[in-house]
Every structure is written in C-alpha cells, then in structure tokens.
Write a protein that binds this DNA or RNA. Sequence first.
RNA 1: GGGCGGAUAGCUCAGCGGUAGAGCAUCGGCUUUACACGCCGGGGGUCGCAGGUUCGAAACCUGCUCCGCCUACCA
Length: 933
Amino acid sequence: MTTTDELPKAYDPTDVEPRWYRRWVEAGYFHADAESDAPPFTIVIPPPNVTGSLHMGHALFVAIQDTLVRWRRMQGRNTLWLPGTDHAGIATQTVVERELLRTEGKTRHDLGRDEFLRRVWSWKEQHGGRINEQMKVMGASLDWARERFTLDDGLSRAVREVFVTLHEEGLIYRARRLINWCSRCRTALSDLEVEQQDEAGSMWHLAYPVEGSDERLVVATTRPETMLGDSAVAVHPDDPRWQHLIGRRARLPLTGRTIPIIADAELVSMEFGTGAVKVTPAHDFGDFETGLRHGLDQLTILDLGGLVCAPAPERYVGKTVAEARALVLADLEAEGLLVETKPHTIPLGRCQRCDTVVEPSLSMQWFVKIAPLAAPAIAAVERGETRFVPEMWTKTYMHWMTNIKDWCISRQLWWGHRIPAWTCVGCGELTVAREAPTTCTKCGAGTLTQDEDVLDTWFSSALWPFSTLGWPDKTRDLATFYPSQVLETGHDILFFWVARMMMMGIHFMGRSPFQTVFLHALVVDERGDKMSKTRGNVIDPLDVVHGATLDALLDKAKQGGAPASALANVKQAFPEGIPASGADALRFTLAAMAAQGRNIRLAPARVEGYRHFVNKIWNASRFAMMNLEGVDADAFAAKLAAGPAGTDLAIADRWILSRLQRVTRELNEALESFRLNDAAAASYRFFWTELCDWYIELAKPAMQSDVELDGGARRRAAQGTLAHVLDSAMRLMHPLMPYITEEIWQRLPRAVGAPASIVIARYPVVDARWEDDAVERAMALLMEASVALRNVRAEAQVPGAQVMQVFVCVADPERRRVLEEHAGVVERAARAKLTVVDAFPAGAGTKAIVGGDVELFVPLEGLIDFDAERARLDKELAKMEKEIEGVERKLGTASFVERAPADIVEKERARLAEAVARRERLAAARAALGTAA
RNA sequence: GGGCGGAUAGCUCAGCGGUAGAGCAUCGGCUUUACACGCCGGGGGUCGCAGGUUCGAAACCUGCUCCGCCUACCA
C-alpha cells in the first residue's frame, strides 16, 4: 500500500515505463520453454531491416503482436514470440556504400569484396541493435534469448541446405533470361521489387522502308531508342494491309541492318497503333517471347550501367537512354522517317529501392521454379490448414499464387548469402554443394570459383519460421514451436514474404508454417497520405512515446533531407511539438484504430485522447489507493468464489461486478478473433464510463464516510469490489497497455500467492454467476433517473452544490420498489433528496419523465423559467408524437406483426406502451404550466 | 484491362438486418477533497447516388459516381 502523496496527480509514463521492461526480462517472463507441457503459442516477428529504425509500421505490429502474445501468456500458454532482424541486402549495402563514398570517397570496388563485407558487418555491429532497443521501449515481450539474424551461421546453413535441395530436385535452375535490371543498383530484381506506374510518355510512329520496294512499314513504339536493337518487325497474320509484306525484309534505319517482317498473332493486335510492331527481344518481355517463337537474334544494346553499347552504331554508344532517344528521334526526323509523335501514357517499372527506371535485360541468373511449390501452398489454404484474417486476403493470395511466375533469386550484390555454386576453371563444370568443394566432380581439377552473386534477401526470409528454430537440425524448439499459431504482418508483404514462407514451410517441414495469417492495414497520416520524409508527415513512434519539441522535430526532418515544404508541414502539424504520451497510449491508439481492412489514419488528436485515458486509469487507481487501506483481498476472493447468493453487496457493487463479467467476455472474444479495436473500445467504455463515471462515484459514500452504520460491512464490500474490479481491469488491459497496468497492479492489494508480476498473472475469465440482468435493469433505471435530474439541474441552472428535493411517482410496483430501495443511488448521482409519493405536492416545479411511468417532480419555486420549461416540454412531446407515430405505423402493418419474430413485435409493443405513457404524463405536465403569459 | 477495399456527425473512425455510436472538435454549466489530461448537461447525421430484396436496410443484391490499393507485356 502506498499513500497518496507518493503518487503524482498526473501520470508520467516516462518515469514509469523504463523501470519495468528490464525487470520483466531479468525475471525471464518472455522466455519460452521448449520442454514445457503447456500448449504452445508461437509468433515469429517480421524481421525488420537490421540497420533500420523504428517507424509507425513497426510500432503497429509490435502493438498488435505483443497484445496477442501477452494475452496468450496470461492464459497459461507456452508463449514464444521470436525476435530477429533481416540483413536486407540492397538496402544495407546501399547505405554502407553511400557512407563509404561520403567519408572516404571510395566505392566498394576500391575496397574489394572481403574488406567491404567487413565494413558492412562493422556497420551492423554498430547500428544493428538499435531497432531492438526501440521495440523494447514499445514493451515488446520478445524472447531475446532466441534472437536470430538472417546471416547467422545457423540461418546461412539453412539457406544453403534449401538451395542445394531445391537444386537437386530441379526446382532451382540457372538460365539466360530477360530479367528486371536496375542499372543504379546494378543488380537483377524480382518482379515484386519493380514498382509499376503509369507515367506520361509519347507514342512515336517510325517508318521502316521495305527492302526492294518503295513501301514503308510504319511501327508504333513508346521506346524509339530500342530500335537500335530491333531484330524483326511483326504484323498480324490476318491483317490484309500487310499480308503481302510477310516474309520480306525491312531496312532498319540508322543501323544499316535489315530485319525480317514476320507474322505473329500473339504479339500484334490489328487495332492498336499502326498494326505493326518493332521486335526487340533483348529489351522487352513480350518481344523476348516473340523472339523465341521465331528464332530471332537477341541484340543487347544497353550495358549494365544503362548506357547504349555495341552492336548499336558507334554514334549512339555511351549515351544514356534519354540521350539516345533524343538522338535517334532527331536522326529519324532528318531522314523523314519519323511519321508521328503523340502523347501517350505508358506503364513504367521503377526500382522499389532507388526509383531508377528498370530495364528488361538479358542475363544469366538463378531462378526458383515456383509452380510446384505454389500448388501445395494453395492447397493448404483451400483445406483450411492456414486461414487469412481478414478473410478477404484469401482471394488475393489465391490469385497471385495461381498466376505466379518463376522467381529470380540471384542478386549482383556482395551483402547476403553467396550462392553455393562453383565453376571448375578447368572444364567449366558447375557444382552446387552445401560446403565448398575442393575438387571438380567432373574432371577432378582443384581450382573452382564460387558464383559471385548472392541470394535475394527474401529467399532467407522465406525460411524464417523454421530456420530460426534450428532447422535443418531436428531441434526440440522445432518440435515444440513449429508450426506457429499466428503470423502477423502488413498486407504489403503478402507476396514478398507470407506466400514464400508458405511455400518453403510446406516443402521443407511438410506443414504450413502458420494456422492464421493476420494481415494489418498500413499506417498513413491523418489525410490518408503515406508517411514520407519529403512530405514531412512522418510521425516517429518514439517521439510520441518520449515527446519531442518542435525544434527537435524540425532538426530531425532536416537531417533526413526533408525539403522546405516538409518542414512547413511539420510546423503546421505540431506547433507545440509532441507531448510525451508513453508507449501505452501509443499502443492503445494503434490497437483502437486497427480495424480490419482499412488504412490506419493516425491522428495526433486520437493519441492525445488515449493519453488522457491512461491518465484517467492512473487517477482512478490513485483514488483507490487512498481508500483501500486495510482491504482484505483474500476475504473478498472467498466471497466472490461463494457466488452472489445471499451476498451483502450493494446494488452498485453487484452491477459493476456484472459489467465486469460482460467486458471480460467481450475482451476474450475480441482478442480471439483479432478484433483489437473492439478490445480497446470495450476496455475504454468499461473503465471510464462504467467504472469511473458510475461505480466509483457511487461507492464514494461507503468508502469515504466516517460513520460506519453497519459496522463497516458496507465499506468492506465497496473496498473489496473496487479492489477486485481494478485488479481484473488491470489484467484485462495489460496486453494492450503493459506498463501502467503493471505499475498499478503492483500497488493493489492482492490475494496471497499472487504472482510477482501481472505479466504472468492469469487473464480474467467470466464467472457467469455474477452476471445479473435484474441488477443491470434496476441500475439502468436508477441511472436514467439520475441523468434526467442532472438535466433538470443544468436546464434550471440549479447551483451544483444545492441538494434538489425530488418527488417520485411510479405506477409499476417493481420499479417503485427499486426506486424506494435504492433511492440512495439517485441521490448520490444527482445530488438530490428523493421521496417516493403517491401524489405530488402542489406548487410550481419541473417534471421529468423516465421510462414511461416514472415521474420526477422537482419543486423549484422561483427558479423556473416557465417559458423555457414550456418549450422543453413541447419539444419532448413532439419527439414522443413522432416516435409513437412511427411505432404505430409499424404495428399497424399486418405483415410486420405476422412475419417479424415474436420477440421483436413484443419489443415494439412495449416501446409503444412506454411512449404512450410518457406522452400522457408529459402532456399533463405541460397542461399544468398553462399558456405563456 | 482485371481484382480488392472505402464513401456514416465539422475531423478521424466503429457499427454491417430490428429505435444511428465513440474519440476529438463545438455549445452551456461546474474551485463536487482521484483526475481541468477532469466533472455534469446539450447540440449536431435524408449513413455517396439510384433502383431492388425484405414485415423491416446504414447494413443484403444490382447499377452508377467519386477516392484509395493491388495486379497486368497492348507496342
């Protein structure tokens, strides 16, 4: 127990939060025991980029996953939330290269592969831990003893094992193909790493003279510079316009080459453009296929840096795409071969990482043959082994999986898992092996060189659910924790990551890696725009937690390279900076807004609202601390265990205990079905509206009174109830708000044998015996009467301190009994003195009607504004008329009475009866006031 | 081109077949000894538009209009 003066009036999360995390870790609460008999609950973290920094997306998944994990842990599950980071090939390498250039003016090639990798590792050692520390601030209850990194020895071994096995099975192959090439990153990319966008471009019509004729064949193109690499012109076989040209040759301008005119029904559409298409097999995916069909030459006229190269004519060599385009167009124009130029929207692919326009490029790469892996991953979802939440993602997953194309997995980078393939210098034989071979398997020579390339980062991420548990060894962890129960991540990486984990997990473990895939929405700003540094609308979760001054925000934006417009946005959004709200408030906000299937527009005002909620929790608890001295938690627990029969609890006690059962049910059900927003809303309503606004206010007299008319029993009941409800509420809300709930729970009187921390306390379960409809109905009436009287007070401007005399008439005997027996509730809530009578005393006053037959008369001689009173009653009467009219119409419809369910009809009848009774009483009250003077 | 979301109070969002809800904002009143990060009371919505199904629709169906996202080689 603590006394009030030790507790500050305002909750300060920055003081409370950091204290707990270390203690939880030291106590080992987050550590999962592979030997435990308890049913496991496993979630693997979506590994953040090792050099990354916490952003709202991370904060969101921490809030969601930690809530699920803490809830399951409190339910007694053997809970494993496995942490780790991703080496993020391109991203990390780029960052280190940039740093190297900035500080030493060198490129990675200046250092050489080994030295460069040493630098990346040292960068990782220096910056790699940051995001983990940031997740700890958020309260993430991760099992740090099991932390993994995708480039760990163990995980690297798993990667080699998978690569070699798939190669042996014929599912990994090497081929010279057209792939997406980023000339800035100088690496191949998978289809997914290319972002398609429609951009403004042009459509040019170019004339190719037909050999041995005066005719010209006009082709339409959006990329005229690629004509330097054309190896044919295609027309539709059925097109009457060009029938006679099929099989002849065209003179390719500017090059001195001639190319065949071919017929291809697949590539060419007669209606589009000019009906004739230039074919450039080495620089266009459609043309590549066409080239294969017709055995055309594949002429590469762009080098790896994106510059024109031979066999393009010397004049163009070394030019960029843009330069070459301008030059080609000018040259064609000069020769009179540029027929037409018009604006045209073109789909353009850009590198996800650096925004460079991606070029289709012909090169030797490694691929995963994906269809045989996709089929079982589709089947697993079809038979329900894995399900998606929200369900709508199933369709998206299926669609992508059924149209999937082979996955290009080799990257021309240095940072990553090097491809375990070696070429014999002597005979050229390619060997794929788990460990570096010493001699060539074919010719026995001893000199082999390893493939220079590394694997796509997502290749190792795809193995994450089992590689992190020790695979390929048959470990105890693997047996206990695979498959995981839930995979929770953003829908933006459904294909990148989730689908690939499904495929690999099923192929190598025989079972889908997750029972449920829960996909959350993306966090965007208040206006629905994606958060970005250039917009200046980024909200750093840590700034919300710790607070930040405007200057600090501006400094950070500047360092991040934000433009002036962005700085202005920051100034406008946070003129006062951001107040320190704590991890609890941020987590609760994210949970409350994480409704399924929508973007989360993070509004700062919303965070503020929930920060106030956290403070409310603090103060309600502070009140409790001041009034719970000497409470005997064990005695009250025994009372609860005995059930409500014959209890000495007051109606308010019974009511809040009943409401507690309901909110307990709501929370368990909401968490069970991943509706965190409902869990948050139910918590909020219960704690603030029901517990604080009603229960605590009603319990005050019993707890604060100096007189103990009943020998202290009433006080003990209220104290016991409040202590129990608070204890339960803290446990209920702990998964959502770990810090404040622990802080308060530690200070509450607890039963003997209670655990040392709320982290491992039991999550509340419903005790249906304490749910009581009759009590809730009675309280509803008392509350309604109280509100009506408060309204009278406000309208009639009765001073807050003045106790109002109130006379009550009730027709219904049961309601009369409730009001007589529990008059104290209304008296306390409305600051009134209640007298139940058969007839009202004479005199001026105001009348309120509750629930049809409860009339509340407040004699207010001299205080009544009769005009206002008449207006108020007229308004209420009109409302009643309208309602009665509506319900009567409904009940007057034969089909309604006949076809609607009986209980609904009954409800409508009751509603009508109440409205009619209310109207009568209102009319009488109105009549008593007469007409205006 | 295909697919999937969304359109509800001034703002951000719940609700998804039986009397329209929350937070913030707004208006009025409160030095009520837990909390002004508060308390009490109030105002505010033809639930995008048009049809349909139903006794009954914000919710289900159809079409339309906007706004997002994903996906696709029409040169």
